[in-house]
Computed example of a mutant assay.
Amino acid sequence: MSTVTRSNVVGVVANVVRWIGLLFALVLVVHVLLTVGEANPANGITRFFARTADPLALAFKSLFMPESAQLRVLVNYGLAAVFWLVVSAVLSRLVRRLS
């Protein structure tokens, strides 16, 4: 494989990793906004983001347990969003450096 082709492939892989992290963070942030904004929990959009965000929150889901459910989602899912942004940035750089 030529150096240019390898460089292009590595760049694409690094960008895909970064975009996946951004997508995960976006799903988590939308879930936070819908929860804090008191969106109708029976609405299909709200349910979709709640179901999708749940596994993405990993162990952050129950890291802090304030009384308010809205504050709980804001803090825990917000931290999970930051986690995905950091992890995807680090992995993206690692992919580029290992090339």
Results as ranks from 00 to 15, higher is better:
residue 16 V to F: 13
residue 74 L to N: 00
residue 45 I to F: 10
residue 30 V to N: 00
residue 98 L to A: 15
residue 44 G to H: 04
residue 75 V to E: 00
residue 66 P to D: 11
residue 91 L to A: 13
residue 15 N to C: 14
residue 64 F to V: 07
residue 45 I to Y: 05
residue 22 L to K: 05
residue 85 L to G: 14
residue 69 A to I: 11
residue 98 L to E: 01
residue 26 L to Q: 03
residue 10 V to F: 06
residue 27 V to W: 01
residue 48 F to A: 11
residue 82 V to A: 11
residue 16 V to Q: 08
residue 51 R to E: 08
residue 47 R to W: 04
residue 91 L to F: 05
residue 18 R to F: 13
residue 3 T to A: 14
residue 99 S to P: 00
residue 25 A to F: 06
residue 86 V to Q: 15
residue 90 V to W: 01
residue 63 L to V: 08
residue 26 L to I: 13
residue 54 D to I: 04
residue 86 V to M: 14
residue 13 V to C: 07
residue 14 A to M: 15
residue 79 L to P: 03
residue 15 N to H: 14
residue 93 R to P: 11
residue 76 N to Q: 07
residue 80 A to Y: 01
residue 19 W to Y: 13
residue 27 V to D: 00
residue 6 R to F: 04
residue 94 L to P: 02
residue 67 E to F: 14
residue 13 V to I: 15
residue 62 S to V: 09
residue 22 L to R: 11
residue 22 L to W: 14
residue 15 N to F: 14
residue 34 L to I: 01
residue 62 S to F: 09
residue 6 R to M: 10
residue 73 V to A: 02
residue 20 I to Q: 06
residue 57 A to F: 00
residue 46 T to S: 11
residue 34 L to D: 01
residue 76 N to D: 07
residue 89 A to S: 15
residue 19 W to F: 08
residue 59 A to Q: 09
residue 1 M to N: 08
residue 71 L to D: 01
